[in-house]
Design a protein around this nucleic acid. Structure first.
Lengths: 349, 349
DNA sequence: CTGTTAGCGCCTTCAT
DNA sequence: ATGAAGGCGCTAACAG
């Protein structure tokens, strides 16, 4: 009778989660044995294993990760906080990270800060509260005290696509100053003298470093460099900037644009080409940054500066794994070099 | 002396997480009060709140979410499993979902199945073990028993960009058959008669429905329809297909291509344009699907079928929230209509 | 307004 | 090979 009632409740509510104790009862063993079947099946007789697994299947038992973690202290999940989930560059980083994490039996959960400090902190808090195995983050500001706190409290932190200025964090990055220099020298080599750098906010190191590289190249060549500030790095913002530039007299337009990333560059390209008021690259040469897949497929195939996105992601996971269980966090810094990819938007056809 | 030692340990190890008990001790209150400060500060005198918060800050206390959840039974996190994180269409869905989730005090964690059944199941398992508030998923196969199990065990499930064939799940989708029809009728209206549908795997409903729509349109018009199968829906695969088509004699090439998504279409476009062996749209007209931002910025601006990506994401969260605490899961189905966006890749310049 | 206490579900000794 | 028991950190219910 009791059994029958229990069965009814199960069928009706279907909500109360089954736990190890119920599995143990059902299989006629102790909870310790169930736990062993789950985690160290070789320590249990095959017959018992089979019986317990049958009960697990019948009852629809699902381990409660919260309880596991509470016991274990840490989870098997890596938190990844990206600047912009819509940027294929970060999507590719995520892919690289996932692939490597898989090999280590870890999962990657992605959170999007959308270039907002508040959202970044919110996600970092969440990940820390979840006691993730570690956090991979492209921070808006690597000097923020929160980041150091998280690391100091025992959650490994790896900076992604970002240097650690004072070597305080493990980091995987690409030399953005070098990349900015590469892009700009290329424009100069194509005979351009009035270069506009488009990007922002300037507080993003990716932006300021690329600009610094551009400045270095320009001043060495004695050319002009203008800074056109954006609020975000998106296709839409690029379109806006493109319209802004076309709004100028032809005489005061730049003869080349270096956009801080490909999203921006593609948006600018759309504006310029759609109106037909400025030819690319004859009137205005254009180069982007990241070399996302879509750059090569653009109206005018877009020159860009390539970064090894998937490799950045997988390397970040490697660094994280190396931090596992270390008492003092790994602070290794891996620096990749960017690579110029010249296409029609600077070379012409 | 004891205090001093404790302090030393904290500084040295830095790893033992601080818990409510320690905060309570430090602040000279009980753990219950600490909990109240954390969750119902209005129930505690301002002076006490201040004292407790000071202790929290000084000790660097971070709530243990595992323990919270264990107690609460469920988390405040929504799991989102997408088919391909590199597809901007899904990135946009994620954005829409996050925005709405924020409004409900929920977080969204994104997992990437990468069109692999095994990875999808792995992530779904993980989310279920985490007792997430619910799961938003674009499944490879909505008939899989696991999906129904998850729902039946009490984790709300909402299908995203996918119909629920038998109405068994809550779902947010766009009429893919209609979309396929729209795209194909447009090609027919442009005078095309030998249409190739490129996409795969056919087990993806998005693919089979769009194909079905194409078939309906084609047979009504008495034109030809060829199915060119792909293994995945990526830019790279598109390039491969493009080369394959160019490998044919001009006489047996299609005069129009309908690609199952924009990634594929952009890859195809790259191949066709780079070799210059076939003009778009004169020799081959091309239309994609999703209308991602990059479609408009393509070499030849790409015609596409637009889907309201952000709206799909936010609506999915709405459905999920409506399931919260319901004994029987909501099975509402929201269906959006796709919209044709004709550009140069079918219209010419 | 504050303190005490009993679990949430799991894992892991320690005995048997 | 199996069973019994304690405790991970938190919250809510209850008592004061």
């Amino acid at each position: 009778m009791i059994r029958f009632t229990a069965h009814l409740e199960k069928a009706a509510g279907s909500l109360m989660a089954v736990n190890v104790r119920e599995v143990a009862e059902d299989a006629g063993v102790s909870v310790g044995t169930v736990s062993n079947v789950l985690n160290r099946p070789d320590k249990v007789s095959p017959a018992t294993v089979a019986r317990v697994q049958a009960s697990i299947a019948r009852l629809g038992f699902v381990r409660n990760d919260a309880a596991r973690q509470l016991r274990a202290g840490r989870s098997r999940t890596i938190g990844l906080v990206v600047l912009d989930i819509r940027n294929p560059f970060f999507a590719e980083i995520a892919r690289g990270a996932e692939e490597r994490a898989d090999e280590h039996g870890l999962s990657v959960l992605i959170a999007n800060s959308d270039e907002q400090q508040q959202r970044e902190l919110m996600h970092l808090d969440l990940f820390e509260e979840q006691r993730v195995a570690g956090v991979l983050v492209t921070p808006l500001n690597e000097g923020s005290p929160q980041l150091a706190q998280i690391r100091d409290r025992g959650t490994p932190v790896v900076l992604v696509d970002r240097e650690s200025v004072d070597g305080a964090f493990a980091a995987v990055s690409v030399d953005d100053t070098e990349g900015g220099r590469l892009a700009t020298e290329h424009l100069l080599a194509r005979g351009r003298r009035r270069i506009a750098f488009v990007g922002g906010p300037a507080s993003l190191r990716q932006v300021s470093d690329r600009y610094a590289g551009a400045q270095a190249a320009v001043s060495a060549a004695g050319a002009e460099l203008e800074f056109i500030a954006t609020t975000v790095l998106s296709v839409e913002e690029g379109r806006r900037i493109g319209r802004h530039i076309l709004g100028r007299e032809a005489a005061v337009r730049p003869d080349a644009i270096f956009a801080a990333n490909d999203l921006l560059a593609l948006g600018i390209l759309q504006s310029l080409v759609m109106t037909g008021d400025a030819r690319v690259p004859e009137d205005i040469a254009l180069i982007g940054y990241d070399d996302i897949d879509f750059a090569a497929a653009a109206v005018i195939p877009l020159s860009s500066v390539r970064q090894p996105a998937a490799l950045i992601g997988s390397t970040a996971v490697d660094l994280l794994v190396r931090s596992q269980g270390q008492d003092v966090p790994v602070r290794e810094h891996v620096l990749f070099r960017p690579e110029l990819v010249a296409r029609a938007s600077t070379l012409g056809s």
